[in-house]
Design a protein around this nucleic acid. Structure first.
Lengths: 100, 100
DNA sequence: TTGACATATCGGTAATTGTAGATACGTTTG
DNA sequence: CAAACGTATCTACAATTACCGATATGTCAA
């Protein structure tokens, strides 16, 4: 992981809501309702649930999630019309290792 | 460490120069000249050296260092007219633990 | 194939951050 | 005490980010 990417990731983390999203995604079952079309959280949580929990607008949260995915913090998996986001633990680990 | 502090620290990290400062301070002997008045880096590196290495203005670097100290990333020790800054490894560890 | 729904993107304004120069403050030294 | 030096603070403007509403896109279901 290089300096540029570390800086990009840090910028994504420089916002309370985005940190909270990462925290919520540590334990989806505890923080979100069950999905209607699947009975697991293997691909994370759908964007709507994150948006509803956040209190911010749909467009804002969509932007957050897209950026977090672009810098590698989240993994996106699409199932039909739904977008599921989960933590990218590998990237998070590399990031924290860099700072250490 | 709570959400607010994690967010503050992330904001400090959301800048390439500030990340670099933290990296430089991992190994002062390698990255800075020796100090003139003391022969060790036990309290870190004086602000002037960091400023000179950064390429940014003195006021900007002074601001950076002050903010990084306020949110706990750095420890400040004054010796006469010099301000020495070193990494606050405990806080950095708590921060990375929080994200994990 | 048309509506409904989930998400993404666009365009705009408010708020925050980046950064510098000028200046003030505190310490040392002549 | 005065000059020199290291650092901090103030002021201002540029650049970036935050965030929303409106709208577009893509998918499913009747």
């Amino acid at each position: 992981m290089d300096l540029k990417l570390v800086t990009e990731i840090s910028k994504c983390l420089a916002n309370q809501t985005r940190i909270e999203i990462l925290e919520w995604l540590k334990n989806p079952a505890e923080n979100f309702p069950p999905h209607t079309s699947i009975d697991h959280y293997d691909d994370g949580v759908c964007a709507t649930y994150i948006y509803e929990k956040s209190g911010l607008s749909q467009s804002t949260i969509s932007n957050y999630l897209t950026n977090m995915e672009k810098c590698g913090l989240l993994v996106l998996t699409r199932h039909g019309k739904w977008s599921y986001f989960k933590r990218n633990q590998e990237v998070i680990n590399e990031y924290t290792e860099f700072l250490k």
